[in-house]
Design a protein around this nucleic acid. Structure first.
Lengths: 229, 229
DNA sequence: AATATAGTGTGTATTAATTACACTAAGTAA
DNA sequence: TTACTTAGTGTAATTAATACACACTATATT
């Protein structure tokens, strides 16, 4: 019986849908490519995996290279493996999404060498994307629409301290519809993972809202028992 | 600017969690390996993809080779990419599940050459599995627990004509808990995707139950509008 | 000081969905 | 005919989801 070593039969890459919220709009990070194929096109940030790292590690590394960020909640959601999806050869891509706070203290520092630039772009005004990246994005948005109803991923988009109105904005942007303020507040508070702070919003020219923060300890206690919208 | 073709950087395989229901037990198909590594161990059926097929096509092909079946509802659910998961090299595995009827007219004809045998095994009595296949199975079971609540995948496990008690058995086995008969029937019928037949169960030594079938036409109409438990 | 502005913050009634719960009916076998 | 086994059914109680409107408060403006 001969022993057959597994032969490499594909290139494997990671593509990331990085969601960001800047206080008003839901955005994703796109790069403008500087290489063929799809030179000068916009595309999702991504790269080939290294042979000595897991796909999760690879996703973290690539995110880090693209943004300078580490320790970000990041989740695999689908693997795209159509034969013709990369015009120059067989590339299977494992897609991840991440949720990032924008405009905070630490700015994002893309270290992309293969891109002319990286830019946060409103998800409602996406340009034409290279490869099958529109499809990858669509699937990603669909995923988080579901997941946001059960998991506390929305808070990843917000600054450490936030108002309930901000949380509602995030939900409305992701779900693509308006929600009733009273019902929303009732529900989001009923999950018991928000801690009301003894502190108010500042710098607004109207009544300042109470600030809250996401309480990881309480969430850990409820883990398993899922949040549900 | 040099143009870089994507280099192959991994072997990619498919692993399948094939669920089957024989009237009493929830089972999955396992093979007993006849090759190193994990010779003589049980493992999930799977194989390397071909370079000229999509991962979905690959999954269908592999399922066909293992069971002789085609046109089976099959869905990708996760990609496993730990570095050390295959002892002989870098193999990334895309996992799929499928739901099959067992014991029907057409028996399954595994055409596995790399396995000593293939066998349906009760999910509550799984042997020790090679590779990270226990983990792949666990994740798969978790997935279908969720999906069975929203999608009509459970009917794929049943014969064309079935009783409501059989449907309930399938749900109880997958969810791992007892359900109330009256509430279950109320709910499953309220989805409106079952058609009551003018026919009764046969060959039982007690009151025969009414047979139903899954109505694909009605389901198609409701498509998009999701079923929910 | 008065006023306009803009977002904050709250409660209740209605409806729908979920849960809990127990007996009778029908068929088969002895 | 009786005993046995599973099929089949309804209602009340609870909980969750929805719909809906106005008063409060901080600031900016005049």
């Amino acid at each position: 019986m001969k022993e057959v070593l597994p032969q490499f039969n594909s290139a494997v890459s990671i593509d990331c849908v990085l969601f960001g919220f800047d206080g008003g709009e839901l955005k994703i990070l796109l790069i403008e490519r500087n290489e063929e194929p799809f030179k000068d096109w916009w595309a999702l940030p991504g790269n080939l995996i290294d042979e000595d790292e897991s796909v999760d590690q690879s996703a973290s590394r690539i995110l880090h290279e693209l943004t300078g960020l580490s320790d970000v909640y990041m989740e695999q959601y689908y693997t795209f493996g159509e034969v013709g999806r990369h015009p120059q050869g067989r590339v299977i891509s494992v897609a991840y999404y991440a949720m990032l706070r924008l405009g905070g203290d630490k700015a994002l520092k893309p270290l992309t060498t293969y891109a002319k630039k990286a830019q946060w772009i409103n998800v409602r005004e996406l340009p034409k994307l290279g490869f099958d990246h529109q499809h990858i994005f669509d699937k990603g948005l669909e995923k988080i629409k579901r997941r946001i109803k059960h998991l506390p991923i929305a808070f990843e988009l917000l600054p450490e301290k936030f108002t309930l109105t901000q949380v509602q904005n995030v939900y409305e942007l992701i779900l693509g519809k308006k929600l009733d303020k009273r019902n929303f507040r009732k529900k989001i508070l009923s999950f018991g993972v928000l801690k009301e702070l003894d502190e108010k919003q500042k710098g607004v020219s109207f009544r300042a809202a109470t600030l809250y923060k996401f309480d990881k300890r309480k969430y850990a206690k409820l883990f398993g028992k899922e949040i549900s919208f």
